[in-house]
């Protein structure tokens, strides 16, 4: 899942980025409102973590611009002012949730996951496809009774395919939403990881190739 963090205070920006990366998110950061708006409009993010008090372009203005442009990306506001007015204004301008500073990182993470689930019309934190169960808060995968150990990259890929199960997922979408594939020079890295996943998940096959289009994770062939 790909997240944009817009925050001008470096300790928060960097720590939130590191924490989200540790939890399998692909993270971009921006330190002012203008850069944030530019990134937000040019990439299909699954979530934007947005500070309210930003140089150049305020968080609320950024949000307004974003919604005006028709973007439906979930937005989690970070605010140091916890007045009701401020929160109401943020939510009314199209934010999906807010957190008051200082916050517990675990809470930010939980809210981020909940917002991403909602984005993909899922409510159950456990993704189930046939006998495959993906526990997203714990980041564990089971098939039947068998626990499957996955690398961070494999897990991120599987989670993305699973959250969009039964839908066709293009290689571009995987490229855009899954952790650090963009840093790979090789263009067939996605094929390689699909191959790893198929091997680890075992039979019957759940990941199906739609030749020339992409992949579908489903129990029906």
């Amino acid at each position: 899942m790909r997240v944009l963090v817009v925050e001008d205070y470096p300790p928060i920006r960097l720590a939130v980025r590191d924490g989200l990366v540790d939890n399998g998110f692909a993270v971009d950061t921006a330190s002012d409102g203008e850069e944030g708006l530019w990134l937000a409009t040019s990439n299909p993010y699954d979530l934007i973590v947005l500070d309210l008090l930003l140089p150049k372009l305020g968080g609320l203005e950024l949000l307004q611009e974003l919604r005006k442009g028709g973007s439906a990306v979930p937005v989690l506001l970070l605010t140091a002012r916890d007045t009701v007015d401020e929160r109401v204004r943020g939510l009314d301008l199209g934010a999906d949730d807010y957190l008051v500073k200082p916050f517990a990182f675990a809470e930010l993470l939980a809210r981020a996951r909940a917002l991403v689930r909602r984005r993909y019309d899922t409510r159950d934190p456990k993704l189930r496809i046939a006998d495959l169960v993906i526990d997203t808060p714990r980041r564990t995968v089971r098939r039947g009774t068998r626990v499957i150990a996955l690398s961070a990259r494999e897990y991120a890929l599987l989670e993305y395919l699973a959250i969009r199960s039964t839908q066709l997922v293009t290689r571009t979408e995987i490229w855009e939403h899954v952790y650090d594939f963009q840093s790979e020079a090789s263009s067939n890295v996605i094929d390689v990881y699909i191959c790893y996943l198929r091997k680890k998940l075992g039979m019957p096959q759940l990941i199906h190739t739609r030749r020339g289009q992409g992949y579908v994770l489903t129990s029906d062939a």
Partner: peptide, 17 residues
């Protein structure tokens, strides 16, 4: 609040693993 939030999130993320 801002520096406190910075302290807390920096420490929490560092301690996570």
């Amino acid at each position: 609040r801002t520096p406190l939030a910075g302290l807390r999130v920096t420490i929490e993320v560092a301690l996570a693993r």
